[in-house]
Design a protein around this nucleic acid. Structure first.
Lengths: 251, 251
DNA sequence: CCCGACCATTGACGCAGGTCAACGACCGCG
DNA sequence: CGCGGTCGTTGACCTGCGTCAATGGTCGGG
């Protein structure tokens, strides 16, 4: 079922109790991804103290909506979320998928209002990090400040990667690139880089990549025929990683 | 010729001298765009002291290159720059145009190396802001810290706009959106919102928008025929702003 | 002032991927 | 366990934009 949950629950805080256990950053398996390396225990403790952990989001539930007031950024603890914008004429654009350890909501800082909406693609837990507290804390913790600059910078760099992808690549390249991205993000969390379950629908994939469902489906079929991929509904197995890389790079 | 230069030079610092005049933030006409509003004079002075102003870039000259070590972010003082990435297979992707008052280079923070290259589209002057100094200063100036978070957040939000554009829009919509973007950025600098000179080539426009030169050219011609635009080489006049907006929104 | 290189425009044509349609598979629900 | 709804796949067809090619226009350098 939900392997992330298992990942996270096997090392609970000492404060844990049945209906209100309290996981914290100090023992979170994902801290290597979402926290700066260089933080000292006391600093982690401080950071931990500002973080709020709400009840899990159910599939389809919103974490925040476009134009909601901006209060916090969020770290994904388990599950997957998608961020998306709605254009004036009602079309939807998925701008990103967020996996455990990743941070979302940073596009809301500029105007004190979220520039996108975020909803859970499956049951998901998040850590809420109130931004005003984070700002204050950053001023006294250089590592933390730097880390947030870096996180935002990475988001920019990744968006630019996506821009290039959308602007220059064929359908095959786009799908290949997404699969490789998911693969490497899985690897970072010590999950399989070659076998995983897509938590998003084909519609979402197509939307994200600027393709129609039909095209995404055809690409999957084609890759399966070429024995690059094993597709069984949402279950994906990458059979030939090199071929996939080649596909993503150039035509 | 270069109206920006005139804009900037008519109010020189008292320290000005022939070969080494020293403009500073306190009297820069663009400070409303690139600095936080809430900064006090003494704070501006401090910020000013870390900023370096090199000699102008000539057309085509690089400000930084992809994978150069990351040292600074840059504020455009005059002229225009483009940022672009080069993919493995040699294709180029323009990721942004930067006008006076705008800040570039923030994508380099994540990995301590620039994620894109930046070159001048015409003679341009920039203020170099060493990032390590900026970080230190931010820690003691909450307004400044907040401002930089906001700037980066805005860059993210804008990139996401572009993603939507590339993913969902027709050639007409893309070109219309770019023209409107330039128009409103001009307005912010108190230049004409309806008449301007495109500093970038059709190739760059096409590249940025994920279109070929030919398509860009055809769209311009079509818009001219519809009396939405007056195109005379790089000189653009928007004749019907509403029609252009309509074109950008939906089909 | 002239030349060559580059830039922009326009036309003819082809193709990748969008659109429309039909159908099968899966899944949550009663 | 059967039923309706959503999701995914596949095929046939169509079209917007890319590609190729030819021509004119502009600009910087000698």
């Amino acid at each position: 079922m939900n392997t992330h949950r298992i990942d996270l629950d096997d090392d609970l805080s000492v404060k844990a109790c049945v209906h209100d256990y309290h996981p914290h950053c100090g023992n979170c398996r994902l801290s290597g991804i979402c926290l700066p390396y260089a933080l000292e225990a006391a600093e982690v403790e401080q950071l931990d103290s500002i973080i709020q952990r709400g009840k899990p989001l159910q599939k389809g539930q919103h974490l925040y909506r476009e134009s909601d007031g901006f209060e916090s950024v969020y770290a994904v603890r388990s599950g997957t979320l998608k961020a998306y914008q709605t254009t004036d004429d009602g079309r939807e654009q998925v701008t990103g998928f967020y996996f455990p350890g990743e941070i979302l909501g940073m596009d809301g800082i500029a105007n004190n209002a979220h520039a996108s909406s975020a909803r859970a693609l499956e049951t998901a837990a998040v850590c809420e990090i109130p931004f005003s507290s984070l700002e204050k804390l950053s001023a006294s913790m250089p590592h933390l400040q730097r880390h947030f600059f870096q996180l935002m910078s990475r988001e920019i760099a990744e968006d630019q990667q996506l821009i290039t992808l959308l602007s220059k690549s064929s359908a095959d390249e786009r799908v290949a690139a997404l699969l490789l991205s998911i693969s490497s993000r899985n690897a970072r969390r010590r999950l399989s880089a070659t076998q995983f379950r897509l938590s998003m629908s084909r519609v979402d994939i197509g939307n994200y990549l600027g393709l129609t469902v039909e095209t995404v489906s055809r690409v999957f079929s084609r890759m399966q025929k070429l024995e690059i991929l094993q597709v069984e509904n949402k279950e994906i197995e990458i059979l030939d990683l090199d071929a996939l890389r080649e596909m993503a790079d150039l035509h």
